[in-house]
Structure formats: structure tokens, C-alpha cells
Computed example of a mutant assay.
Amino acid sequence: MLVAAAIGVGLMAAVDEIVFHQILAWHHFYDRATPAIGLLSDGLLHTAEIVVLVAAGFGFADLRRRGALAPVSAWAGLFLGAGGFQLFDAVVDHKLLRVHQVRYVEDLLPYDLAWSGSGVLLLLVGAVLARRGRREGAPVRGSGR
């Protein structure tokens, strides 16, 4: 489940960086400096997400090769990682460290609620799948699961 959680973190970081930093241009990873520093911080986030995705991809491939991949647990990990990233970003980056906000608008509350709520929803889906995965047990060796 940890490998899949890392994939979830990397995918959510990619969605955040590509959609909200690049396409919509709502914020940079670090907005408390010059635009050049903001752009640099986005590049560093993008580099980190790619490193995480590649490393987790190798781990995922190894689990499949050994017949040790439990699909439901993998999906659980993916959702838990994505939700964990989203909620961490909402609470730590946006509110505690204030490195950036979701969007710089007068009424930030709807954006904060949607951002945090999506993280909580992803975590709930992951928790339900993790519980289901525990009930179904470990994968059968050689089954390709």
C-alpha cells in the first residue's frame, strides 16, 4: 500500500502543479517572494513529483513481478496518498506556513472548503478501500493480482 500511496502523492502533486500552478495560474508553490522564485518553486515541486512517481513506479512493477500486489490495497494506497497530499497542502502549506493560497480572491472560504473537502473525500475513499482490502486478504502468489 505504501508504493501506491507514493503514486497517489505524486499524481496529486502533478494535478496541483499542472492545473492550478500552470494552466489556471492561481498560485505558485511559494508565493511569498518574486515571480521568478515562485516559478523556481514550481519547477522544484514538479521535479519532486516526477522523482516520486518514477521511484514508486519501479516499486509497483516489482510488486507485480513478485505476485505481491493486492489490487484493492493498492487502490486504497493511491487514494490515501492523494488525499493525504491534498489535506497536507490545505492545512500546512495554505494555513500554517502560508506559502500560498488556493486562489487569491476576496472570499477564500469556498476555495478552502473545496480544497480541504476534496482531500477528506479522497482519504475516506482510501479508508473504505483499505478496510475492504484487509477483509479480502493478501494476493495469491502467481495470480497476477
Rank of each mutant, 00 (worst) to 15 (best):
L39E: 13
L124C: 14
A90N: 12
D107N: 14
V51K: 08
A36M: 11
A90R: 01
A4C: 08
R66L: 13
F79Q: 01
L129P: 06
P35N: 08
R32F: 01
F29G: 02
P110A: 12
D107H: 13
R132K: 13
A130W: 12
V19A: 14
D16Y: 03
G67E: 12
G38C: 13
A25V: 06
S116N: 11
G117D: 08
V105G: 02
G43A: 05
P35D: 05
G8Q: 09
G38P: 04
D107Q: 11
L124D: 09
L108T: 14
I50F: 06
L78D: 05
V15W: 09
L109M: 14
S41C: 08
S41R: 02
E17D: 15
I37T: 12
E17G: 13
V72F: 07
D16I: 00
Y30I: 12
H46A: 15
G83E: 01
M12D: 07
H100S: 04
S41F: 01
A114I: 14
S41V: 11
L69P: 05
M12F: 10
I7H: 03
G83Q: 05
A6D: 00
I50H: 06
G8C: 09
R32A: 10
V128E: 02
L108Y: 03
L44I: 15
G38Q: 11
D112F: 13
V92D: 05
D62E: 14
V128S: 06
I23C: 03
I23Q: 00
G8P: 01
P110L: 13
T34Y: 07
V105W: 05
W115A: 02
L87Q: 07
T47S: 07
R64N: 06
F20H: 00
R32V: 04
G117Q: 14
G83H: 07
R135N: 03
V54K: 08
Q101C: 01
G59S: 13
T34N: 08
A56M: 04
I37M: 12
H94S: 08
V52S: 03
H27Y: 06
L109R: 14
I7P: 00
W115S: 03
G38Y: 08
